[in-house]
């Protein structure tokens, strides 16, 4: 087995890893403030990809508007729209569940997942539609010195990493971020200091949703866009979150990246286990470090 094969699978794994990182980061941010797990996170990822696809290929056909939303515009439009959906969901539904057992938030977002998935499955092929809007600049391959790698994938990795670390920096090192952390630590006291905690909660949920939408846009040119693309991913991300623990932002990012890498390498050394390796790692973590690698028991 050549070093090239291993390196290219590692990079492909890292590519998957940045999606894991972005999604588990969103889940962790939402969990921190709202104490709920957003099952619909996968569906929002799917939604982001579909917004990009519809904006590029179907606007004219469906609505008769001669407008095409290109890839770059999608990177802004899709997260905003998905974030808006997040605002609506949080304001109209989740808000009423905060006093109840946290499992109701999970069940609600599960229901929303079914709705979104079912809606798209009515109009789009379950086996996937390719996204044709990949920009010209990002096509082709780049020479990394030791191997060639698709330009778009490299872009997706770098772009996602920048977004992840910007989020981390924002939360850990800015004034607004410190208010957010105060809200996580003690919402009542934060509110007493005159900060609008309900607004923070809404915006946080919207931000997490937007991140998922953004990941969806980035994934669209790589994978074919399908109604089920989020569902299978989100369960892996749940395992990532259990492994990493949701205590820290950096923990969520790093465990996402690392597990994507592990998955990629498993594809080289023992392909049949590539689907399940993360779940088995979760089992090991549960056995030896039940709170998760970066977690503190809550």
């Amino acid at each position: 087995m050549s070093i090239q094969v291993i390196m290219s699978q590692a990079l492909l794994g890292l590519n998957v890893g940045v999606f894991y990182a972005m999604l588990s980061l969103g889940l962790a941010v939402i969990f921190g403030l709202l104490n709920i797990i957003n099952f619909a996170h996968g569906a929002m990822y799917m939604l982001g990809a579909f917004i990009a696809l519809i904006g590029y290929s179907f606007l004219e056909q469906w609505f008769g508007i001669s407008l095409q939303i290109g890839f770059w515009a999608s990177l802004i439009v899709a997260p905003l729209l998905v974030g808006l959906l997040g605002v609506i969901i949080e304001r109209t539904m989740l808000k009423r569940l905060y006093d109840l057992d946290h499992i109701y938030g999970l069940l609600l977002t599960f229901g929303i997942t079914l709705i979104l998935q079912g809606l798209f499955a009515n109009y789009f092929n379950v086996s996937g539609t390719p996204y044709p809007g990949q920009p010209e600049v990002l096509s082709g391959v780049v020479n990394l010195g030791f191997m060639y790698f698709p330009t778009y994938r490299l872009f997706a990795i770098v772009f996602s990493l920048v977004v992840c670390f910007a989020t981390w920096f924002f939360i850990e090192h800015t004034k607004l971020g410190s208010r957010l952390r105060a809200g996580v630590e003690n919402p009542d006291l934060t509110q007493a200091f005159g900060l609008n905690v309900p607004l923070m909660v809404t915006l946080t949920f919207a931000f997490g949703a937007g991140l998922a939408g953004l990941a969806g846009v980035l994934a669209a040119p790589i994978y074919s866009v399908s109604p089920l693309m989020g569902a299978d991913l989100i369960i892996v991300v749940f395992a990532v979150v259990v492994i990493g623990g949701m205590g820290s932002i950096m923990g969520a990012i790093l465990s996402g990246l690392a597990l994507g890498l592990v998955e990629g390498l498993t594809k080289v050394f023992y392909p049949p286990a590539a689907n399940t390796v993360i779940f088995f790692l979760m089992v090991l973590v549960l056995l030896f470090r039940p709170a998760g690698l970066f977690g503190k028991e809550k």
């Binding site: 229901g111 079914l114 709705i115 499955a121 009515n122």
Partner: peptide, 21 residues
Amino acid sequence: FGSWVQVILGVIFVVCVMTFR
């Protein structure tokens, strides 16, 4: 109704969690 079943089940889910626990 094909995939609409999923949508309807999802709506029932949401309604149950919101108002009919």
